[in-house]
Amino acid sequence: MVIYSTSGFFIVFFIQHLVANHANVHLKLPTKIRLGQQLKFDCETSSVISATKSRQWRGGANNKLLCYDGTTVDPTKYKEKMINQTNYELIVEKASENDLECPYACRVGFDIDQKILEVNENNFVQLPDKTITKVDYQMQNGQYWLTLVLFKVFPKPLCKLKNQGRVLPETNATKSVVLYNVTYRLESSESIIPCGEKLEIECKVGNERYLVPARNSIICSPKTSKDSATSLETIVGVCVACISFVGLAVLLTLYKRKKNGEYKKAVNKDEGMNRTM
Rank of each mutant, 00 (worst) to 15 (best):
Y4N: 14
D113V: 09
K265S: 08
C102F: 09
L117P: 06
L254S: 05
G8F: 09
H17N: 15
M273T: 14
L211D: 08
D69P: 01
K130F: 14
V238F: 06
F14V: 10
L29C: 07
T6P: 11
W145I: 09
E118T: 11
Q114E: 09
V125C: 02
T72Y: 01
Y68W: 12
L248Q: 15
P222W: 13
C67W: 00
N63D: 07
E170Q: 07
V73A: 03
R34S: 14
L161E: 00
Q37V: 08
V236T: 10
V205S: 01
L211N: 13
S244E: 10
K264W: 09
S217G: 10
K175S: 10
L146I: 04
P75Q: 04
N84E: 03
V25Q: 00
A20V: 10
E44H: 09
Y88V: 02
K258H: 11
N24A: 10
F10P: 14
Q38C: 12
V238M: 07
K269G: 13
K258P: 00
S176G: 13
E262T: 11
C102K: 06
K94V: 07
E170T: 03
T71K: 08
C195A: 12
R257W: 13
H26L: 08
K94L: 02
Y4E: 11
A95N: 03
N216W: 02
K259S: 12
T147K: 05
P128H: 03
I15F: 08
I235D: 07
Q126F: 13
C102Y: 07
F245I: 14
S7Y: 07
K264C: 12
N274L: 12
K79H: 08
V167E: 05
S176A: 14
Y180Q: 09
E121T: 13
A51E: 13
V177M: 09
T183F: 06
I219D: 12
E89M: 06
T76L: 06
C242H: 11
A51H: 14
V48H: 07
K256C: 09
K223C: 05
S231D: 15
R34K: 07
L232T: 13
E271Q: 14
L248E: 15
